[in-house]
Design a protein around this nucleic acid. Sequence first.
DNA 1: CACAATTAAATTGCACGCAAGTGAATTTTG
DNA 2: CAAAATTCACTTGCGTGCAATTTAATTGTG
Lengths: 159, 159
Amino acid sequence: MKAHTTKTMEIPQEEKRLEKQLCFAVYATAHAFTRAYKPILDKVGLTYPQYLVMLVLWERGELPVKTIGEQLDLDSGTLSPLLKRLEQSGLIKRIRDLRDERQVIVSLTPRGEAMKGEIDTIMTAIGQAAGCTLKEMAEMRDMLHRLRGNLGRTGTDGG
Amino acid sequence: MKAHTTKTMEIPQEEKRLEKQLCFAVYATAHAFTRAYKPILDKVGLTYPQYLVMLVLWERGELPVKTIGEQLDLDSGTLSPLLKRLEQSGLIKRIRDLRDERQVIVSLTPRGEAMKGEIDTIMTAIGQAAGCTLKEMAEMRDMLHRLRGNLGRTGTDGG
DNA sequence: CACAATTAAATTGCACGCAAGTGAATTTTG
DNA sequence: CAAAATTCACTTGCGTGCAATTTAATTGTG
């Protein structure tokens, strides 16, 4: 594998500004989303990552920890304590799989299932806060999806 | 102020899927960016948020903590320990302002200033990882900027 | 079937991010 | 000018994220 000359040609000053950085736009918008969700999620006692886990379970039903991690791009170091909190909140159960005792199957309790009724309220509220047209939202989502695909397959080429 | 009927009309199942959520696209892309930056930033001994602080200082010169926080949308609870680590790394100085002793002025050390030479290498590497055209990047950045503006001014209407 | 390699989840350690509270300095007000 | 209100940074506590390690279970191999 011959490395092509990683040519570091001069980038114009203007392009180096924080406000010009796509990475920062994504970073800051992610925080803005979390903050926008907070007052809404506080009412149902969820953090934003916990809400994402609930979304996955509402959509797909009971799942092993591994699969939840694949859906959300999170590892067990993040999920294990998070799921423990959701369990203590009485929203999910964690049961070790009898077929394969390495796995833990996560499923919704009746309370967790019932909370699914809140989805519309939550999504409507956020949709209004975002203040985008559905077309814009879809467009942005697809662009981000592509971008994420590109970034994900970065071969950690140099180290 | 009469609340307009927060009409929670039915959202189609398909739209509730995780993959359809713009918030998740932003969330996951932010993490993908951080991971893409990691091998590059490891070489210069910075975390991604630390890199953002350095960007601000390279661009604007010495600044009080407050202003850095405004630029990055971070509060002192996040910045104080982060800046302390950058100081221990020998990249910045923190000096209490003599005019207003409530403020702490953050400035670059010679080592921090010298690191500015790494910018081009870092940005070029990330640019290649992102694999977008400059037009796409600009487009996405501007859409995110607008979105962030909308989310930021969400009046926490209900609590 | 024993034994090495692999896999899943949990744990540990560190660095954010943010709410809430503290303490010191400055500004506002009476 | 003195007291009250505000501002700034720091600290504390909690919940992520993630690398690295640990423990237990399963799979692959001879």
